[in-house]
Computed example of a mutant assay.
Amino acid sequence: MIKWRGTSFSVHPLFIMIMLASLLTGHVIEMITLFGIVLIHELGHAAAATIFGWKVQEIKLLPFGGVAVTDEGGSAPCHEEIIVALAGPVQNLLMIGAAYGLHMLGFWSEAWTEYFVQANVMIALFNMLPVLPLDGGRIVQALCSLFVSYHRTLLWCGRISMAFSLFMIGFALMPLYYREPIHLNLLVIGIFLIYANWTDYRNVPYRFVRFMTNRDRLSLLRMKQGTIAYPIVVGSEQPLGGVVRLFMKSKYHLIYVLNDRGKIVAVLPEQRLVDSYFANFMVK
């Protein structure tokens, strides 16, 4: 692991194994090129995140590409999340343009330009699949948070990601039906993604707590900005945990509490519930 300006750079063991395999098969230059493309892709994410004031904690190079780990913790606006997610594929488009330019100037051969362009297209398109932690999965999660509660967003995006990962594994194994070699690279990536998403799915309660830790600060900010409150109507017997799970990421809430006869008995700002949530959390 290498650390530079507060950001750690690490390489997943599977990525190292793939690089070692390239040494044995004589594709060292191609693998180094792929490594560079992935790194530039991730630096695009990191640059966009830094512009928005996010702290980039780590850049991980994985078998299918990479992941830029940030500290936003569910507190960033939807448009920022989408821009940061798209910043990686944009780097691939820029590299494709540069490759064609170098070819036209006579610096790159047609064969090498074709390989470089295909590698960028493959990485960009694969990362746009609606699977976390790929860029497409992050965009889907950001858009989903506009319409449903953040807790439900975490659950459903995790389920969608696992479903697509299983489909990827099934597609990789499909050649067995025709007694042909399986798509080994796709199988490894699918297994890695299903494991990563299953782990994240099990950690949804902890990820939600992280989201709630930023909620009080964001609530005060939205109040100062004059954001219109989005009502949540609950019964007086509704558990506190169930109420806060109704919070939407991009909304400020007022909670209307009804008694058994449907009469409003209290109107609470969401900060009251956030404070109570963490008070109960600390007691537990």
Rank of each mutant, 00 (worst) to 15 (best):
T70H: 04
V69C: 04
V257P: 05
T7V: 12
A76N: 09
P77I: 14
A48V: 05
S109D: 15
E42S: 04
S10P: 06
L186V: 08
V121H: 13
F278A: 07
L24K: 12
L94R: 01
S276I: 08
F211W: 09
Q238P: 00
Q118T: 06
G158H: 04
S161C: 08
Q271I: 14
R5C: 05
M168H: 05
Q118C: 08
Q238V: 00
R261Q: 06
A21D: 09
Y256H: 13
W108K: 14
P181S: 12
L221C: 02
A229Y: 04
L187N: 13
A124E: 03
Q91D: 02
Q238F: 02
N280I: 03
L193Y: 01
G241D: 10
R245Q: 15
V117A: 01
F116W: 13
L220I: 09
I169M: 08
I169T: 00
M122C: 06
V233N: 01
D200N: 12
T213H: 11
I59P: 06
M19H: 09
A68H: 08
V188A: 06
E80N: 13
S165G: 13
N280Q: 11
I29K: 07
G235A: 03
P181W: 08
Y195L: 05
R261N: 11
L166K: 04
W156V: 14
S75G: 15
F35M: 14
G97Y: 03
M122F: 06
G88S: 11
L218T: 03
L193A: 00
S22I: 09
K224Y: 01
T199G: 02
C78Q: 15
E80A: 14
G36H: 01
V265K: 00
A47P: 03
V233L: 07
G190I: 00
L129Q: 03
R261W: 07
L240K: 00
V84D: 13
G106I: 01
I59H: 04
W54S: 04
D260C: 01
N120T: 03
N280S: 12
L94I: 10
L62W: 15
A229P: 03
K60G: 04
I40W: 13
Q225S: 13
R138Y: 02
